[in-house]
């Protein structure tokens, strides 16, 4: 009974089980899969996509969408690199980039809340606008990334891992605690779970959503910076399509599109699952033309399994909270 209870109350539980199962199956499919060397490669971009997915997840819990994260993923580091090229020190440039990201989030919140446009549409517009801004501010030619910067503190190598993995852990744990153990976190769930109820009970739902919009954008901007630090290059097209990857990771991780359900750890597991899937497709040498089909099919399967386990758990659970 405990196990089924966990399946229902922890949205990420079935994703976690799936991750374990896939790890097992994949290790049978390819002897390389479970090697340290392989994990070192697979884990490299995980902090980046997982941070984006965490932001999208928290926003989705509050009942909103953000399709502009892929563009902010490029805009924010572009601002940073341009500030550095203009002579500002790295910390100032990073803050500048994050402020721009926060402003994009604020604009998303304004369009969604004040103008009453569904966030799906508002942020779709922002997807194009932010991407365009990225090109405009760099005038089409981003400055070369300064290769001599000391970036050990954020992307340096510790044994097999990058320091960025610890940033992910730190940010993930902090946000996880904030979401589960703090009153504001509770308001985020309430706002997404039933906006009217939350409002009736005195929660400032506009403040909650503005906060989650801004947090989502800033996480996307920070993740973009990590990628720029890691590959030591900035191109205006970076992050294209990440919004869909992030939403896929979020949903695989157990978040509900309608809001009110989800978890930080689920977002990370979702990002890991997607990376593992891509990895095994490469390791088992699936034909190039089938690549996207395989990725798409596995996303659908993952979410279906997710839903089925939850339904089964819910049915088992129903009899349990009986009253007198």
């Amino acid at each position: 009974m405990h196990f089924k209870k966990m399946l229902q109350t922890k949205p990420e539980a079935s994703a976690f089980l799936m991750l374990m199962a896939m790890t097992f199956v994949f290790s049978l499919l390819s002897p390389t899969f479970l090697t340290l060397g392989n994990f070192q490669i697979v884990l490299q971009p995980i902090p980046e996509i997982a941070l984006v997915a965490i932001g999208v997840t928290i926003l989705m819990i509050s009942g909103e969408f953000d399709l502009s994260v892929g563009s902010v993923f490029a805009l924010s580091p572009m601002v940073m690199v341009l500030l550095m090229a203009a002579g500002f020190p790295l910390p100032v440039s990073m803050i500048g980039g994050l402020v721009v990201a926060a402003l994009v989030g604020l604009a998303n919140a304004f369009i969604t809340i004040r103008l009453g446009i569904p966030s799906f549409i508002a942020t779709l517009g922002m997807l194009f606008m932010a991407r365009s801004m990225t090109v405009v501010i760099s005038d089409g030619f981003p400055p070369p990334f300064p290769r001599d910067l000391d970036l050990w503190w954020i992307v340096g190598k510790v044994d097999l891992l990058r320091v960025s993995v610890f940033w992910l852990l730190g940010i993930g744990i902090l946000l996880g605690i904030w979401l589960r153990k703090f009153d504001f976190g509770s308001w985020i769930f309430a706002t997404g779970g039933s906006q009217e109820s939350a409002r009736n009970m005195g929660i400032n739902v506009n403040l909650v959503k503005t906060t989650t919009f801004m947090l989502c954008s800033m996480l996307a901007g920070f993740a973009g910076m990590i990628q720029v630090f890691r590959i030591k290059a900035i191109v205006p097209s970076m992050g294209t399509g990440y919004e869909l990857t992030a939403i896929a990771a979020t949903v695989i991780g157990g978040a509900a599109l309608a809001g009110g359900v989800g978890s930080v750890i689920g977002a990370v597991i979702g990002a890991l699952l997607l990376a593992f899937i891509e990895n095994i497709i490469i390791l088992t040498r699936v034909d190039a033309n089938w690549f996207r089909f395989a990725v798409g099919a596995i996303i659908v399967i993952a979410v279906t399994i997710n839903k089925m386990t939850r339904d089964v758990a819910a049915r088992a659970k129903y009899k349990e909270v009986e009253d007198d």
């Binding site: 009153d183 509770s186 308001w187 769930f189 309430a190 779970g193 039933s194 009217e196 109820s197 939350a198 009736n200 009970m201 005195g202 929660i203 009110g260 359900v261």
Partner: peptide, 21 residues
């Protein structure tokens, strides 16, 4: 309110203290 007094996905305890945690 009939339909908007509670957040269905949240626990009873959290619902009792919603906004007044």
């Amino acid at each position: 309110y009939q339909y908007t007094a509670m957040v269905p996905e949240m626990s009873i305890a959290r619902n009792v203290f919603i906004g007044r945690e």
